[in-house]
Design a protein around this nucleic acid. Structure first.
Lengths: 185, 185
DNA sequence: GGTAACATGTAAGCGGTTACATGATTAG
DNA sequence: CTAATCATGTAACCGCTTACATGTTACC
């Protein structure tokens, strides 16, 4: 019985998507819609989130007092906006500091196919190598196209988005290079 | 009614895990247990699979005639071994050749935390950078430790496992470098 | 005598996506 | 006028992991 009360007190760890939503609100996103857009142009290449996760997360965060929400319609179009509370800031920091094991989860059918490519005639296999390289080349291009925005964010005092962007560019470039080297063997 | 018959004819695309299992059998894995082990030392860093997926996949592949299975107990310990059929080889090749869009799915809570790290005091944020770098450094080490095995596989005529290994090493090394550069800024 | 490794299978639960559902505003 | 964008929410489904379940053999 007491355990039940403790569980209901709302002090447990939130699911990961809620922290993503909380972090985006801290960075100035106001509505669920804005959070979705921000994710698409910033952390999309290492984290995705659908609006079916965002809206329940916002409700949960508000319930826990980590964000404050209020209705702020644009004309007759409904809209609910949020800002982070003091407790929200604290909880975000706690989560960021928390040294949990951070597994690197990559799930890439392209690399799986490449791994098995010896089953193919050479020219088909090489086509696969080029497809994997091309995909990363495009990704590098996409990431480079948001560099200017990241620089703006950097000048506003948030320097870490630029770091994750550089990491993304670096490792897709590394994939391109590894494929090129193989092709040129 | 006719549509149902077509669906039951067994000619549809299999789930991805089944192709992974099929590919591993082609490379010489005999039992479900061996497949699990092979995945852990080879494609683990870009694809995982649990035995709860492997055994049903094997049953499906056998049902479709893509692998042949037979009981081959070791002493009184039961054991079911498989080999790939002609149709299995063809279906694997078809799947490998098939130019489907190959989305790169990375899901990394470590990079998410890094992205939000401006919410932390500088020393805590730098600790995070080091944690992310350290994780990739360890991964590079792990991957390097299977290089010898990949060379063996290469000499046996399968050259692509070595390519995916080099890609893995290259992009984790790229992450380490990007973090080091940031720290030294 | 006990733990680790060998070996296979099923069931329940969870986290996530897709689809369903609705409606207002803006730009062409 | 109509398509795209803004904006929020729920329900069904799916793939995967974890846990449950069982038994053997090798090694210390």
């Amino acid at each position: 019985m007491a355990a039940t009360l403790v569980r209901q007190s709302g002090s447990e760890e939130l699911p990961a998507p809620a922290y993503v939503v909380l972090g985006m609100i801290r960075l100035g996103c106001r509505s669920g819609y804005e959070i979705k857009q921000a994710v698409e142009i910033s952390i999309r290449f290492f984290w995705t989130i659908s609006h079916a996760q965002i809206y329940p997360s916002l409700a949960l965060l508000e319930e826990r007092g980590l964000v404050r929400g209020r209705d702020e319609p644009r004309g007759r179009r409904r809209r609910r906006v949020f800002d982070i509370s003091e407790r929200g800031e604290q909880e975000l920091e706690r989560w960021l500091r928390q040294a949990q094991p951070i597994p690197f989860e990559l799930r890439d059918i392209g690399l799986v196919k490449l791994f098995f490519a010896d089953a193919l005639p050479e020219d088909d296999a090489l086509r696969l190598v080029r497809a994997v390289a091309e995909r990363s080349r495009e990704r590098v291009e996409t990431l480079r196209s948001v560099e200017a925005e990241a620089e703006q964010v950097e000048q506003d005092g948030n320097v870490y988005p630029m770091l994750t962007l550089r990491i993304g560019i670096a490792f897709h470039q590394a994939m391109v290079n590894a494929c090129r080297e193989f092709e040129a063997r």
